[in-house]
């Protein structure tokens, strides 16, 4: 078979697939952040902890209640979204009239508290979660594990489903309008505070779904979100704060770029996303898909 710059196709496609998987997580997580930021102007620093809670919820459902992966896939995001609803009602909703920074500090603090509690209870060595879809298929040029194909497919479906809901439906038009003029949308008869609460719950649910998907791939571990979320924030900045399509395309795109960097110049693979972020901020500060304010 062909070789490219001395790289075997197995290595190339293997890294491409890994890049796509990482991209699927970047996209799901930055999408949730974009939905929340777009409507609420809150930078949800608890997002990484909520991703971790999704993974833990599926581990707990399996080990304490015997609920298998496919049940957890639905239940865990709903349970974690409910904690998000409570947090929004109890804390975040009191900060809307204040500067952005307060929301950021609050959610950052909540992330530290949550991660601390899980670390105290479960340690940091990580808990195993069995792969619900073992095996795979040999495509000739590479081996494709079923579970990884499933993760890419489901996140594409969820990402574009969310995009469709926000850009093409009546409910989405309420969300977009409330992003611009919440007071006027409410004066038309729409309960905007309730919509904001549910939107936060939805964004949190997306993070938890990513956590459930991650559980069989990475070990379930209290700091799994803290490590990932920094990259995800870079993705959000590159895509443009609050842009739905931006977070999806940038999430997958950067995952792939990171994977390719691992093949061709492994030394840069940990920094390539941040280098891109710096370049984008210089050339187009509003992000690739953002609109200037």
């Amino acid at each position: 078979m062909f070789e490219l710059l001395g790289v075997s196709p197995q290595a190339l496609f293997g890294q491409l697939l890994l890049g796509l998987i990482n991209g699927a997580f970047y996209a799901l997580l930055s999408l949730g952040l974009a939905v929340i930021f777009g409507l609420m102007n809150v930078i949800n620093f608890t997002h990484g902890a909520q991703y971790m809670m999704g993974a833990f919820a599926s581990w707990m459902l399996l080990n304490y209640l015997g609920v298998p992966y496919w049940g957890a896939l639905v239940l865990a995001p709903i349970l974690v979204a409910l904690t998000g609803v409570v947090i929004e009602r109890l804390f975040i909703s009191r900060l809307y009239h204040l500067d952005h920074l307060y929301g950021l500090l609050l959610t950052f603090g909540l992330a530290l508290v949550t991660e601390g509690l899980f670390r105290r209870e479960y340690g940091i060595s990580g808990l195993p979660y069995a792969n619900p879809l073992p095996g795979g298929i040999n495509l000739g040029f590479m081996f494709l594990p079923w579970y990884r194909a499933w993760v890419v497919a489901i996140s594409l479906v969820v990402c574009f489903g969310t995009w469709f809901m926000i850009e093409k439906t009546q409910l989405g038009s309420y969300l977009r309008a409330a992003t611009e003029r919440p007071d006027l949308v409410q004066a038309f008869g729409i309960n905007v505070p309730r919509m904001i609460t549910l939107t936060y719950g939805f964004g949190v649910g997306l993070a938890a779904l990513a956590g459930v998907l991650a559980a069989p791939i990475y070990s379930v571990n209290p700091v799994m979100g803290a490590n990932l979320i920094i990259v995800v924030f870079a993705v959000v900045v590159i895509g443009g704060m609050g842009s739905i399509m931006g977070s999806i395309v940038t999430g997958f795109g950067l995952g792939v770029i990171e994977g390719l960097t691992k093949v061709f110049y492994p030394e840069a693979s940990n920094t390539v996303i941040f280098v891109i972020m710096a370049i984008v901020l210089m050339v187009r500060p509003q992000g690739l898909f953002g609109t200037p304010k």
Binding site: Q170, S173, A177, F188, G189
Partner: peptide
Amino acid sequence: FSSLNVWENLMLPP
């Protein structure tokens, strides 16, 4: 609303 087209603006108020 700038993020809504004319039709969506028209159909917005319930």
